Simulated assay, not measured.
Amino acid sequence: MNRSIVILMVVLMLCALSLVAAQQKTRTLYVALERAQTEERRLNQEWLRLEFEQRNLSKSARINEIARKQLQMQAINPARTQYVTVD
């Protein structure tokens, strides 16, 4: 009888330790999940900001402004147009 009680106590202790280990692993995985979701939200916000910035940089008005000011380009002038003819 004593032997069966000791065996049951050992099995009960192993089950209790297994439960504690499973709960700790669950907590650890939950914390990792929360961190990953926070990172996902941050990256989504960064992606939206970059898309907005790309749209602003690719607007034709901005391109025309840069062409005129930085590259010193001018609009087409028929008086300065040269035509090439082939014989």
Score class of each variant (00 low, 15 high):
73 M>A: 08
66 I>L: 11
34 E>G: 03
12 L>C: 12
30 Y>K: 08
44 N>P: 00
77 N>E: 12
84 V>N: 12
29 L>H: 02
21 A>F: 06
45 Q>D: 15
74 Q>Y: 06
5 I>P: 01
29 L>C: 03
49 R>T: 13
64 N>S: 13
76 I>K: 13
57 L>D: 08
20 V>R: 01
49 R>N: 13
28 T>F: 04
69 K>H: 11
21 A>H: 06
34 E>W: 01
29 L>F: 02
63 I>Y: 09
64 N>A: 13
28 T>R: 04
49 R>D: 15
70 Q>R: 05
14 L>Y: 02
30 Y>H: 04
71 L>G: 02
78 P>K: 03
44 N>W: 04
13 M>K: 09
7 I>G: 00
76 I>W: 11
17 L>C: 14
83 Y>G: 02
54 Q>V: 06
18 S>L: 06
52 F>E: 12
56 N>M: 09
12 L>I: 10
79 A>T: 13
84 V>Y: 14
34 E>S: 04
29 L>V: 06
9 M>I: 10
14 L>M: 15
2 N>Y: 05
15 C>Q: 08
24 Q>D: 14
85 T>Y: 14
47 W>T: 01
42 R>N: 01
10 V>M: 10
41 R>K: 08
68 R>F: 09
67 A>E: 07
45 Q>N: 09
22 A>G: 09
84 V>P: 01
17 L>I: 11
54 Q>E: 10
5 I>C: 03
62 R>N: 14
1 M>F: 03
26 T>W: 02
65 E>P: 00
82 Q>G: 03
68 R>K: 14
7 I>W: 01
46 E>G: 00
11 V>Y: 01
73 M>K: 12
20 V>Q: 13
76 I>F: 12
38 T>K: 06
46 E>K: 02
78 P>D: 08
10 V>K: 09
35 R>T: 05
16 A>K: 03
71 L>E: 07
20 V>A: 12
56 N>L: 07
21 A>V: 07
45 Q>R: 03
2 N>R: 08
55 R>S: 03
19 L>P: 00
70 Q>A: 04
72 Q>M: 10
14 L>F: 08
5 I>Q: 11
56 N>T: 01
25 K>R: 14
